[in-house]
Amino acid sequence: MTPMKEDYLKIIFELGGVKKKVSNKDISLGLGIAAGSVTEMITKLADEGLVSHEPYAGISLTPDGVKLAAELVRKHRLWETFLVDKLGYNVADVHPEAEVLEHQTSDRLAAALDTFLDHPTNCPHGGVIPSATGNYSDVSHRLLADGQDGEEVMIERFLDNHELLVYLHDLGLKLHDRVTIIKHEPFEGPVVVRKAGSDQDIMVSFKASHNIFINETK
């Protein structure tokens, strides 16, 4: 299993590919790669029995794909939590370190790390952390890009991407912020949002809006 294949399994997991079909376009935007490359890799993963691909319908993880993706996500996000909470890393900087560490982490070490961290359920950028048995709490898979104009939503989590996290920090958007979606600019333009209590519009790029997950405000 190559690191690139693992990245595909993790992004499909994050986009909701356990319970629904996800599109090539969303995978492409999530990984920041060309759509043609996505098609080629999905074919390889389907041949290995890790994903199911229905043309024009979308992509989902098979049971074997779910098991492997949950294990990879669990180890990666436990290390991210450790690096931020115990070593003081900036959230935007932990991904490459966690990528290296997850591949050297046995199930026993992951269990010890989980216990040491007091069994966290979410990583620093809001991603769910599966248990050792692959269970995890339900999360929203709605993207900011799919929100409706005029809707008030809460930012639930971000995809794990250094450039994205730096970009959102510069915009002043954080986890659990409540925002109103003002409008979607046409022709793959930005999504305009406004934070609760503010009168300033924030322009979130088309790509970033496909890397931000939202939930209904409570």
Rank of each mutant, 00 (worst) to 15 (best):
K183D: 14
G189F: 02
A46T: 10
H141V: 13
D170F: 00
F206G: 02
L45Q: 05
L101D: 05
M4K: 08
I155L: 09
G88N: 06
E40T: 15
L113T: 00
V91E: 01
D64P: 05
V204P: 00
V139G: 01
V100I: 14
D170L: 04
E156Y: 02
L171N: 01
G49C: 09
L165N: 01
G30A: 04
T81A: 09
R74W: 12
L15Q: 06
K25V: 02
Y167D: 06
A34H: 15
F13D: 11
A57Q: 15
Y8K: 09
V51G: 03
L72A: 10
V128L: 09
L78C: 02
A111Y: 11
V191F: 01
E99I: 12
G49Q: 05
A34S: 14
E151P: 07
L78E: 00
G17T: 02
V192P: 03
D47Y: 14
R77L: 08
M1L: 13
G197E: 05
G150N: 08
V192I: 12
P124T: 08
I214K: 01
N90G: 07
I202H: 00
G126S: 12
E14D: 10
Q148K: 15
M154N: 06
D7I: 09
I11T: 04
I42M: 13
R108Y: 11
K20L: 13
H210K: 10
H210N: 10
M1S: 10
A69L: 13
V94A: 00
K25R: 03
T133L: 14
D201W: 08
N122Q: 10
H169Y: 03
G49D: 07
L31P: 02
I212A: 01
E80M: 05
Q148D: 13
D149I: 02
P3S: 01
L164R: 04
L50G: 07
G197Y: 04
R194P: 04
K86S: 08
I182Q: 15
L173Y: 00
K20F: 12
H103F: 10
S198I: 09
Q104F: 15
E97A: 14
I11R: 01
D160L: 12
Y136H: 11
A145P: 06
T121Y: 10
T180L: 09
N90L: 13
A112K: 08
V84C: 02
D107H: 08
L9C: 08
N161F: 01
V91S: 00
D160G: 14
Y167Q: 04
S37P: 09
A145Y: 04
H184M: 02
A112I: 12
E54Y: 11
K207R: 03
V193Q: 02
D114W: 09
K21T: 11
V94F: 00
I181L: 15
E14G: 08
E185Q: 10
